[in-house]
Design a protein around this nucleic acid. Structure first.
Lengths: 83, 83
DNA sequence: CCTGTCGTGTCATATCATGTACCAGAAGAA
DNA sequence: TTCTTCTGGTACATGATATGACACGACAGG
């Protein structure tokens, strides 16, 4: 238990906007900004901004940690990752 | 089943050198090259090279996918990641 | 004993992707 | 109006990727 209990965290996910919640699982599946952009029909730049915003809100260092976070939270499962 | 059965994969992990097998879990835990270098007392450049080699041997696109792979293979568990 | 050759470990350079720090306009809701 | 969200942008710093290079030990053949 090297981690803050969920009950003590004021819902990190609720701090994310709806669009950010769309971006999150894509990052967690190992997709890069260009892929995310083409999936959601936005520019790579915008995708980048969302990832940065997500990372800051969740207090994470990089997108690999975003993936680990998403798995811990059950936002994605290992089965729904590409490979 | 969008994936090659394990029995048909000739042990991807066996293709990794001993040193690469040390790097793999660190990457999978979301550590960056600088951290990996300081943990293993090698330069950031060398750590970088190992990650590239691992990624190519495993046929993955980036280090987030390395993390997902390591989790699927049970090389690391979500509990042993930092945050 | 020599001499390749191979795997491994190490580090470097160059280029591309990602991250950081902003700014700003459009649209809709409060 | 004011606020949030979504969208795209610039500029720069850092991280990641592609590739090359060298040293070393192991090992086989000569």
């Amino acid at each position: 238990m090297a981690q803050v209990p969920i009950s003590h965290r004021p819902n990190l996910l609720d701090q994310l906007s709806p669009r950010e919640r769309e971006i999150l699982p894509l990052v967690a599946q190992g997709k890069d900004n260009r892929e995310i952009g083409s999936i959601l029909f936005i520019s790579e730049k915008t995708a980048k901004n969302y990832v940065t915003s997500i990372r800051k809100k969740l207090g994470l260092k990089n997108r690999t940690q975003i993936a680990l976070f998403a798995l811990k939270e059950g936002i994605i499962s290992l089965e729904e990752t590409n490979e």
